[in-house]
Design a protein around this nucleic acid. Sequence first.
DNA 1: GAGTGGTCTAGACCACTTG
DNA 2: AAGTGGTCTAGACCACTCC
Lengths: 239, 239
Amino acid sequence: MTDPRLPRYQQIRDFIARAIAHREWATGEPIPTEAELAKVHGVAIGTVRKAVDLLVSEGLVERVHGKGTFVRRPSFANSLFRFFRYSSDESETLMPGGHVQDRRRVMPPEDVRKSLQLAPNQYAIQMKRLRTLGQKVVLAEDIWLPADRFKGLLDLDPAALEPLLYPAYETLFKVLIVRAEETLSISLANASMAKILGVHEGAPLMAIERCAYDQDGRPVEWRRSHGPAAGFRYRVEVR
Amino acid sequence: MTDPRLPRYQQIRDFIARAIAHREWATGEPIPTEAELAKVHGVAIGTVRKAVDLLVSEGLVERVHGKGTFVRRPSFANSLFRFFRYSSDESETLMPGGHVQDRRRVMPPEDVRKSLQLAPNQYAIQMKRLRTLGQKVVLAEDIWLPADRFKGLLDLDPAALEPLLYPAYETLFKVLIVRAEETLSISLANASMAKILGVHEGAPLMAIERCAYDQDGRPVEWRRSHGPAAGFRYRVEVR
DNA sequence: GAGTGGTCTAGACCACTTG
DNA sequence: AAGTGGTCTAGACCACTCC
């Protein structure tokens, strides 16, 4: 399953990441102890520690001294601030709702196809989605997925995809998002956007393009989101 | 110098970081080999490796297999994309000029004082600065520094601070920036901003607030930058 | 071939949590 | 006291670069 030419610690990291993606250990539950992992994989404990170090740095897992190592994933509030980096004004306790409006199986435009590394004849699934805070629409999203990794999504009850997509990807499609690249820019509202977001035509909008990658580094989602500029804040740490 | 209660690998990391900040090893030059560092500090090589791992993850140093470990600092193009995350349209080869306009020693406003963790009676140095691409002003910056760590900055020839501030901080004040937090938002140009940036009043601007931290995790610079929204792009990787 | 970092071992002892 | 992760050792051998 894993490339045997990879270092042992990488293989063990992949093994654990895959097990987590497949929900073999529930969120908040401990993974096997380092001693046990070492025994199972037939390596020294230092090698296991290096594998776990990687997972910690990816945010997939959390060490607690004296207790164990725990699956750390976005049960809720977490994924919000890992990937939903938008807050209207300062309030920390925001909790956006998600509302999938539209789902289709289509050929993606060229830029999306490239970002998702799809072959020219491969299909994508497109979804339109609104994010709301209270009654207010704060973000209109246009989401693209590789169809072959999300078989059956079109037949799902839309409610199964709410309030957050990434936990649903994980549970339903064994796709675990571990990182993403985002590009921010500013655009002006056209007529339809203005109507959806409740701003006047030509009002400034924040545009966020995101490409999200799974535990194996493959791109699995591309989205473009638009939100009203007023009150928009985006926080990030750079190194 | 370093807290002896810290783990050895932390102490060694601090030792190396400090040496780099003090320019004991030039940019692009190799630091001592791992074997040598181990001998000097009287530890096993694995401990040194852990220290160097930290520095690599901080981007301070770069390993090259078979050759050595090299000081990686923003000699030039690097710091641009580490900390100057602004590009007008897609062109990758941008190289913004910096032009310090104004320097003063003043009491900082409350929010700046807090961000820099200054005591209520401590002074700050304020600088105004323009960033240009070709003839065009792309960013107007308002920069605040703790006065006690930048003694003598007011007497310097402004040219000593160009084209980039962070290398100057490092050479002249032994302050090495290793990370920063940024908050992006959108504002509208007032009359003076409009004039400086060459846009009409009320035009949308990108506003970037940044707090930068040194190798010891202390905040050493706060700045607020404004640039025209048109053509603005900000790329970031999130985990 | 000599020198560098990269991987891995088989332990030891310490610090913290839980019963 | 037992079990967990955290630090550290004193090596071994491999992969890569340079001469």
